[in-house]
Amino acid sequence: MIRVKFKNKLALTGAATTAALFLGLNANAARMDMVDVSNNNGYMSTAEYVSMRNEFGVKAVTVKISEGGTYKDPYAASNIANVQTAGLYINGYHFARYATKAQAIAEADFAGQTAKAAGLPVGAVLATDVEAEEQNNQSKATNDRNNAAFMKEIQKFGYRADIYTSGSWANNKMTIKGKTGWIAAYPYVVSGKNWYSTNHAWQWSSMAKFRISYGGFDVSQLNSNYYTADQKSTVKPTNKAAVKANNQKAYKNASKPCATAKWVKESKTYTLKTAVKLHTGASTSSSAITIFSAGTTVKTDQAIIQGGYRWVRQPRFNGYGYLATGPASNTLKYVKSDVTHTYYTVKSGDSWWTIAQRNGLSMTALASQNGKTIYTTIYPGQRLVVR
C-alpha cells in the first residue's frame, strides 16, 4: 500500500469488460467492507467517511501509520480522528522495509510509537504491509521470521497484528495461515466465488469510487470480524444504486486515458520553516537527493498538485529537484489539464525493464511517472502510465 498503493493483479483485457458488467450489474459483487487510505489520498474529511459508511456500506477504514524506520504518514492523526467521528472501525498499517529480525523489531517499535502518538486506539489492528523489494530479496523462512518478530513486538503496544501482502506472495514469499492475513488480488470477476475466504480480508480493487471523494480507493471484502474488533457490524449501504453505478465506473473502460494535472509556472522563493527532503521526482516514494535544513532558501520555477501534496520544482545545476510545500488542499495555482495518458496493463512475467523497453522509456522514467521507484514491486493487472 505504498501508495501508491497499487497492488493490482490480473490483465485488463477482455476480462476487464466482463468484470465491468459483472460488478456493475450483479448484486453478488465483492463488498466494500473496508477502505484503506494513506497520504496519497490527501486529507479525508469526516463527511467523506460518513458517505462511505451510509451510501456504500463501508464498515472499517485502515490508515497508513508509518513506513520503514523514519516515515510518519502526515495524515494519520486526522484520518484516525475523522474515521472515529464517522462511526467506523479504525485500524492502521505499517509499510515494511525490514530485511532482518532486528530491523523488524525496530520498525515495529517505531510503528507502535507513531500509532500511539497519532491516536490509534488500543485493540485496533496494526498490520504489517509486506510487499517491498527488501522482502522480495529474502527467503520465505527469513520473511516468516521477520514478520513474526514484527507482529510479536507490535502486540506490546496493545494492537492486534496481521500481515498484508499480495496473492502472488502469500505462501510463496511468506506463510499466510488460514484465519489470518489480508490478501490483495484483483481485478476479478466474482462469479459466485469469494477469493481468500479463509483469510481475514480480500482486497479486490484499487479503483473503487465514492460519491464525494476524489480518486480511486483500495477496497476490501472482510471475511471475518477481525478488522471490526471482533464485533458484528450492521452497516449496510443505503444507496444501492450509487454502489452499483460506482462499481461499474470503477471497471468500465478501465484502459481509457484520463485527465491529469499539469505543471504550472511559479517563480517563487521559499524559506523553509522545517527540514524538508528534496526528491528526484514529485512523489514521496522517489529518492531523496538531500535534506534541506530549516532556514534554507529555495527558488522554484513550477508547481503541481500530485499524490496528495503540492509540489514545487527547483532548477539545479544537473537537472531538477522536487519538494512538497503542503497538502493538496493548498491549491494556489493548481489547474486541470486536457493532457491524457496512455496506460499499459502489467502481465505475468513483465518487469520494469521489459515494459520500459517496449515503450521507449528508461526504467527510471517509467517508474517516476507512476510515482514509484524501480525497486517497487509491480503486479499483473496493475495499470502503468507509459505516455
Rank of each mutant, 00 (worst) to 15 (best):
L366G: 05
A288G: 06
V219E: 14
H94G: 05
E55N: 15
I355K: 10
A250R: 05
V219L: 05
N225Y: 09
A118R: 04
A96P: 01
N199W: 03
T128A: 10
G42T: 06
K9M: 12
G69I: 13
K64E: 08
K101E: 13
G24V: 08
A81V: 13
F317L: 15
H279G: 05
L384I: 08
G68R: 02
P121T: 00
S337D: 06
L332Y: 13
G381I: 09
A102G: 12
A303P: 01
Q84A: 02
T290S: 08
R211A: 15
N40E: 12
T373Y: 00
A259D: 11
A275M: 00
A242S: 07
G295W: 14
S283Y: 00
S197M: 13
R145P: 01
Q221Y: 10
E134H: 08
V58N: 05
G57F: 01
P74K: 13
N370C: 01
A282M: 07
G68I: 03
R310G: 00
N28K: 14
A20Y: 00
T70E: 13
T142Q: 13
K249T: 09
R387T: 15
R97S: 12
K347T: 09
G295V: 14
S337A: 07
Y375F: 06
I163C: 11
T142E: 12
T364G: 04
A29V: 10
F292Y: 10
Y344F: 04
G181C: 01
K336F: 11
I154A: 09
Y309H: 15
A16L: 05
W202L: 04
A365E: 13
V312G: 00
K244R: 13
R387D: 15
Y186D: 06
W204Q: 10
R53P: 03
T271R: 07
A118H: 04
L120A: 03
L323V: 03
T238R: 11
F150T: 01
Y309K: 14
E55Q: 12
T234G: 05
A242R: 03
K173C: 07
A328C: 02
A29M: 09
A29N: 14
G68Y: 04
M34N: 13
Y375V: 06
S329M: 07
S362R: 01
K244F: 09
